[in-house]
Computed example of a mutant assay.
Amino acid sequence: MNDENTVPASQASTVLNLSTDSGFYTDWKQEYQLDTEQAILSAGRTESIMLSTTRLISTLCTLLKLPHSVEFSSIDTLERFLVTVIDDAEGTSARNFVQQMPLYVFSVLSLVSKFFDAHVKLDPRVLEQILQQYAPNLPWSDKRMLELEFEVLKKLNYKIKHSLLLGAVERFSKEFILTLGIARKDFVGSIGVKLLRVVYAQKHHIYSSLRPSIKCEDMFVRFKSNKLILAAATVTAMLKFCGAVQERVVDQVVNQLSNECFVEPKNIIFLRDAILNVFN
């Protein structure tokens, strides 16, 4: 992949979780349907902020050696938090919040890390050193960090979630790429994580490039709010990097994914091409 478009990896050995235990329950798509409806209500509110914060989270996960599960879940958690803040904040209050963003990024990383492993505690000295590089003028203390963690938890009704996009990409990769036998499991996992980082960082650009082709605004908002379709397009893009060049093989996977996502195959191809265009 082009280094210019690749967000730094959190760990060189980090790969997707492609074990036989998917971690999904029978009606696993219900959560994605609810997420889509919520995303539609908040569409566009965080786009101007999420590009820079996504890159910051990925960079911090590199420095702190945090796994990709924490990285992507932190991005999603921060975006959910931002939606609630934007709903409540106006004018000067909103600007002050944006200036404090690095502190909120740190607090979300800390929260999500502890959510995945109760024994994890980020070293406050390391955090302070990193913060001095990114925002030397922001006040820092352990007390301040705890206050922000509580603020985030309260805004999110004390609910921290795993990344839905990551979960769908892992599931689809296991079911529709590994079964083809075109690449080793570790290679598929590594490509998946790298591509996901690009998708997260370039999401606004990816969807903006498609906007002129979709006449109905409501249809476009629903399309870009659906993480299942984005996961399907990401997995379809992974086929190219895994060496799947036969049209018959690609069509087979796309058709399977379209059935999973209840969407026409051309919509997945439409979004896949926009993802791949990031590398051109």
Rank of each mutant, 00 (worst) to 15 (best):
D3Y: 11
P8T: 08
Q11D: 05
T14R: 09
V15Q: 05
L16F: 12
S22K: 07
G23D: 02
D27I: 02
K29T: 07
E31Y: 09
E31H: 05
Q33Y: 10
D35N: 13
T36I: 07
E37S: 10
I40A: 06
G44P: 08
M50Q: 12
L51M: 11
S52L: 14
I57R: 01
I57H: 02
T59C: 07
L60K: 00
L60S: 00
L60D: 00
D76S: 10
F81Y: 14
F81I: 02
L82R: 00
D87V: 02
D87G: 13
D88H: 12
L103K: 01
L103Q: 06
Y104R: 07
Y104F: 09
V108R: 00
L109C: 01
V112P: 03
K114I: 04
K114Y: 01
A118K: 14
V120T: 12
V120Y: 01
P124H: 04
R125I: 12
V126R: 04
I130P: 01
Q132L: 15
Q133W: 03
A135C: 09
P139V: 06
M145A: 06
L146I: 14
K159G: 01
L165I: 09
L166Q: 14
G167N: 14
R171F: 15
E175H: 13
T179F: 07
T179Q: 03
D186S: 11
S190N: 05
G192A: 04
V193A: 04
V193K: 02
V193E: 05
K194C: 08
V198L: 14
A201Y: 10
S213H: 06
I214F: 03
I214K: 01
F220M: 04
R222I: 03
F223G: 02
F223C: 00
K224H: 10
N226D: 15
N226H: 12
L230H: 04
A232N: 07
A232G: 12
C242K: 02
G243I: 09
V245P: 01
L257R: 01
F262A: 06
V263D: 05
I268E: 05
F270T: 04
R272E: 15
A274V: 07
N280G: 13
